[in-house]
Each structure stands twice: as structure tokens, then as C-alpha cells.
Design a binder for these strands. Structure first.
Length: 202
DNA sequence: CATAGCAGATCGAAAATCCG
DNA sequence: CGGATTTTCGATCTGCTATG
């Protein structure tokens, strides 16, 4: 089995290379810092991707890999535990999603499981997702809140949004607060990534 | 370190709009 | 019409961060 490990962290690259080569007895293990194009994984069967900084691009490439060759097994590591990224990854169809590598045996178990064709996802994230769905159903955004969400998602600050919608900054803040509550988000970064992964701009 | 600016929460309340 | 919901706005407070 040809394995590719992707991580910007040399610690993770080194550690996983060692685990795959020694513990899992897989000599054909390559490591790189980032995914740049699909052609990098041409003869790879198993990919472990640690997405930390350039999430959007890394996920895009993972998506195109999965689209053209769904037989390649992919595990995503997202230490920041981003719910929106998790959702996207599930949609794409990655086989595994982990937020931490705390236990060696557990990690090996997950890898073996995925290699054998099964799937493995972080239970906490599944739970969060279900809770979130429930909340989302209970609280739909109003028309105005959606407008504010779209503009905030594009990166405008409160004052700019107010100008565009002909309302004061205070009102924008009010809408933003409601959006946080209804969508279970915490801050602007959440809004932007939510907007990115949920196509609210129509 | 002081401060300026932005983000966000909370409380309160009035006007506008929707809907049975 | 009349109640419910949405939209609007202000004041005030806390926390973060960039800048000098």
C-alpha cells in the first residue's frame, strides 16, 4: 500500500512516518507539507491529511481527489475541531476524521480500520453536528439576518454592513448576535467559514 | 505601557410588518 | 383588528489587538 502523509508540522510528519513504517510495516510511505495538486497522489492508496492553516485549499484538493478516485482512502486531521470542516469532509466522503492523536494504539486501530474499507469519525463531532442540526431547525434566520450573514461572510465589518443595508452599526451588531445564537457560532471567523461551507450566498 | 478601535454581549424599547 | 414577530436603534460594559 502506498501511503502519503500531509502535514505542515514536521513533528507530525516524522512521528507518523515512523508509525506507518515501523508499527504498520509500510515501507512505501511518503511525507509532504501540503497538497498542491491532484497529480501528487497518482499512485497513492492511502492519504493522511493534517489540515491546519490553508483549510479551504486543502479541502478543495481532497474533494477533487475523492471525486476522481473514490477508492483512495483518506483520513483528515483537524486539530481545531471545526464543525463546518467536518461536515464538508463527510459530504466529500473521506473515510476518517480525527481531531487528535492522543493514543498510539487507538490511532493504529483507526488507520487499520480505514485501510480495511471501514469508516471512522470522531464521535464528539457527530454529536455536535446532530445538536447543531436540531438547533438550526428550531431557529431559522430571518431575512435580514441572512443578509447580514452574507455580508459578514464576505468579510465586511459591522460599519460597512450598516452602510450597505442603510441601518446603524448597532442594528448590525444585534443581528450578528442573533446569528451567533441561532447558528451556534462564536465569532467572525466562524461566520466566514460557515459562509464558505454552506453556500448561503444563494 | 497607554490608548484607540473593533467586536461582541446585555438590557431595553419603539416602530414596522406579518398573519389569523 | 390585535397579537406575534421582525427590525431597528441606543447605551454601556468587557475583551482583544495593533500601534506608538
Amino acid at each position: 500500500m502506498n501511503i502519503l502523509i500531509v502535514s505542515e508540522s514536521f513533528i507530525i510528519r516524522d512521528a507518523l512516518e515512523e508509525i506507518f513504517k515501523v508499527q504498520l510495516e509500510n515501507e512505501n510511505t511518503k511525507v509532504i507539507k501540503m497538497l498542491h495538486s491532484q497529480s501528487e497522489v497518482d499512485n497513492i492508496d492511502f492519504i493522511f491529511v493534517d489540515i491546519r492553516n490553508d483549510v479551504v485549499n486543502q479541502i478543495k484538493i481532497v474533494e477533487s481527489i475523492k471525486k476522481t478516485s473514490p477508492e483512495k482512502k483518506i483520513i483528515v486531521l483537524d486539530s481545531r475541531k471545526r464543525g463546518s470542516v467536518f461536515k464538508k469532509a463527510i459530504k466529500i466522503g473521506v473515510e476518517g476524521y480525527v481531531v487528535d492523536i492522543l493514543d498510539r494504539d487507538e490511532f493504529i486501530y483507526i488507520v487499520k480500520k480505514v485501510m480495511s474499507g471501514k469508516k471512522s469519525y470522531e464521535f464528539d463531532l457527530i454529536q455536535d453536528m446532530l445538536n447543531h442540526e436540531e438547533k438550526h431547525k428550531k431557529y431559522d434566520l430571518t431575512r435580514r439576518e441572512e443578509e447580514v450573514l452574507n455580508l459578514a461572510g464576505e468579510g465586511f465589518n459591522n460599519r460597512e454592513i450598516g452602510k450597505k443595508l442603510y441601518i446603524t452599526e448597532c442594528t448590525v451588531k444585534k443581528h450578528i448576535s442573533n446569528i451567533f445564537m441561532k447558528l451556534n457560532l462564536k465569532n467572525r471567523k466562524d461566520i466566514i467559514s460557515y459562509a464558505k461551507y454552506n453556500y448561503i450566498n444563494k
